[in-house]
């Protein structure tokens, strides 16, 4: 591939900067010099050869078995999964009825008032800390922390050992969240006191 490069008047013409390291570089001046626009000194063109790193999916050295056709391979997988989930849902729904208690009554507080299960971790944490502190810390750390993960971990490496810090952070909020959600769901009873699940389950889906 031939690139025409025109360094501006102040740049050092002897350094062809953009070429990749391993690419054989034709030394400046070897290629034929071409005249620049008239009356502007130092704008001569010269040519050089460079390898451009391949980035598109269509590789020249593509082996024949690297990809498969979407129809049928991917569509079959999707269809089977959809059927499996449908079957699972229908069977579950036939045998397990969604809970429905008595009609809402603002003047009767149940002995256990719990948020939906995915917020029970937060509810559990709110019983440890001052709610203002907990709210100020936990919600932004969780949501904001998840949002900025790709902008904090900038390395291209994916192995666990190459991104230890972000793994630790992620594991902390995931495992920590799982534990407090579990405690809030199954180990808390009236008055938010500790209750073993076999002594009474205070959990609604």
């Amino acid at each position: 591939m031939t690139i025409e490069k025109r360094p501006n008047a102040t740049a050092d013409k002897n350094v062809p900067t953009q070429a990749p390291e391993r690419a054989p570089i034709i030394a400046p001046g070897v290629g034929p010099k071409l005249p620049g626009p008239p009356g502007v000194p130092g704008t001569e063109r010269f040519r050089l050869l460079a390898y451009v790193k391949q980035e598109s999916m269509v590789r020249v050295d593509k082996r024949p078995d690297e990809t498969v056709l979407t129809w049928p391979h991917l569509l079959r997988a999707e269809f089977l999964m959809a059927m499996l989930i449908t079957a699972l849902l229908v069977v579950t729904s036939v045998f397990i009825t969604a809970p429905l208690e008595e009609m809402a009554n603002p003047s009767v507080t149940p002995h256990v008032a719990k948020a939906p299960w995915y917020f029970l971790g937060l509810q559990e944490l709110l019983s440890y800390f001052n709610p203002t502190v907990a709210g100020v810390l936990i919600i932004p750390v969780y949501l904001g922390g998840l949002l900025i993960i790709p902008y904090v971990d900038r390395t291209p490496y994916k192995a666990v050992r190459d991104r230890k810090m972000i793994w630790i952070f992620f594991l902390c909020i995931m495992v920590g969240g799982l534990i407090v959600t579990f405690i809030g769901s199954f180990f808390r009873g009236p008055g938010w006191n500790w209750v073993w699940p076999w002594d009474g389950l205070y959990f609604n889906l």
Partner: peptide, 14 residues
Amino acid sequence: DQIAFWAITVGTQM
């Protein structure tokens, strides 16, 4: 129902 009412009361307060 009661589950819904109190779960939302607690959830929005949080």
